Amino acid sequence: MTEPETTRLVAWSNELRRVHTRIRAALDVTRRSLRDEVPDQQATRDLLLYCHGFCTALNGHHQGEDRSLFPAIEAAHPQLAPVLRLLRQDHSMISHLLQGLQDAVDRSASPAELERHLDGVGAIMESHFRYEEKQLLAVLEDLELAAEVGEVLGPL
């Protein structure tokens, strides 16, 4: 095996960590925009933008995993099927929570309500990321998957 191929194999675990870090940062920016909001149109537009960007990034990440990463892991490691099933269930739950957040933003919910939505999404997201990293990072060190990072881990 040549050096670049080895680097690419190891990179899937690094890429997953990077994507999780970027999504955590997007949640933080969204929370800060909510806390700093003043009642003017620009602040409301900023919040809409941050929430939309965060929701899109997190959903895109999970869709990429469901479409490309998890099938490749299951093919190489069938014993991980129960883990992958739980992760997919988390994806579904997070998607539902994100829709609730988006609906609250669209109807201009109060900052307190938006904060509750962000807290719920953040708690489940963080639990999911920790479990996913604990269960999959070692597997990703050796996973052979010839695909673009954005296709596999989302558009971040």
Rank of each mutant, 00 (worst) to 15 (best):
T6G: 09
R8M: 06
V10H: 13
W12Y: 00
W12G: 04
W12H: 12
E15Y: 01
E15C: 09
L16T: 05
R18I: 04
R18F: 13
V19W: 15
T21S: 04
R22N: 05
R22L: 14
I23F: 04
V29Q: 07
V29M: 06
R32N: 10
L34W: 07
D36H: 13
V38H: 15
D40I: 00
A43E: 12
R45K: 11
L47V: 08
L48N: 10
L49D: 10
F54A: 05
C55T: 15
L58H: 01
N59E: 15
G60C: 02
Q63P: 03
G64R: 05
E65D: 14
D66E: 11
S68Y: 02
F70N: 03
F70M: 02
P71R: 08
A72K: 03
I73N: 09
L80Y: 06
V83E: 12
L87Q: 07
R88E: 07
D90Y: 01
D90I: 06
M93F: 07
M93Y: 08
I94H: 02
H96E: 15
Q99I: 08
G100V: 07
A104H: 04
S108L: 13
S110I: 00
P111T: 14
L114S: 01
E115F: 04
D119R: 04
D119A: 14
G120R: 01
I124R: 14
K134F: 08
L137V: 13
A146R: 11
A146K: 05
A146P: 00
A147N: 13
E148N: 10
V149P: 09
G150T: 09
G150K: 07
V152H: 00
